[in-house]
Amino acid sequence: MNQKKPSIKRVKNTFARMILASAATISIVTTIGIVCVLGNEAYSFFALPEVSFVEFVTGLKWSPLLGNEKHFGIWPLICGTLLVTCVAALIAIPCGIVTAIFLAEYAPLKVRAVLKPVLEILAGIPTVVYGFFALTVITPSLQSIFSGIDVYNALSAGIAVGIMCIPIVTSMSEDSIQSVPNSLREGAYALGSTKLETSLKVVFPAALSGVMSACLLSIARAVGETMIVALAAGNLAQLTLNPGNQVQTMTAYMVQIFLGDTDAVGVEYKSSYAVAATLFIMTLLLTWIGHNVSKKYKEEYS
């Protein structure tokens, strides 16, 4: 009796452990699922006679929906994505980093108590709301300031994506700035530097790798952002560097295909999987580099 009881406990323990472990494997199964689905469908896309892998990777023309003259060159989509991402990064990275420095080094407790929730709200707003904001507020304002801006344009979408990314950059950068050991600050003060010099020349460089990883991760978010660009950036895949033009991003193309009436076996439909695979690889690289940068940083300071 006395011996039996612990063994039941142990069986329960092992059983619980197995269940928990199987839950943990679901995340691996998800990754395998994504890779297999994208890989398989993209492969069958490239196996089609009207498509070639070389054209996909090097082609400068993307016109999958035109009757006879279909071209599958990914670069116009990548160009559109990068254009929106660049605008977003130009807004989110400076604003986010300065806000983070302010929050971590300067802001009094009361200001922090107001700012942090505001940033959390900003981070919690659904992206479709930002898309609506871009379409109905940012675009008309831009059109009244600059001439030659399309109704759908990369600039307005980029600004909205940038606003969306500010909280991401801020919260992660702030964490890494705060984790800089105080001894560094005290050392700088002891040498007679002002608060500004300490923040910019001592603390910020020490936190740089964390800040960089924050930037990379937010760029990854911007690249994969869907609803804002679907609403505000347009649906015309073209190679352009003018942010006032209409562009099509990779995500917007996918939305166009999956919302449209294209049948599930057509070449256009399959092309969206190849685009998704490209997007997946791009974001994966960005996240992976982002995490490695911050890992390096952790080794330095703890």
Binding site: T251, M254, Y273, L284, T287, W288
Partner: peptide, 21 residues
């Protein structure tokens, strides 16, 4: 470690890719 790395990478996957999955 692989599971941990995997989870942090999954957090960075665009939601539209999950939609396709």
């Amino acid at each position: 470690r692989f599971i941990e790395l995997n989870i942090s990478n999954l957090a960075g996957v665009p939601s539209i890719v999950y939609g396709i999955l």
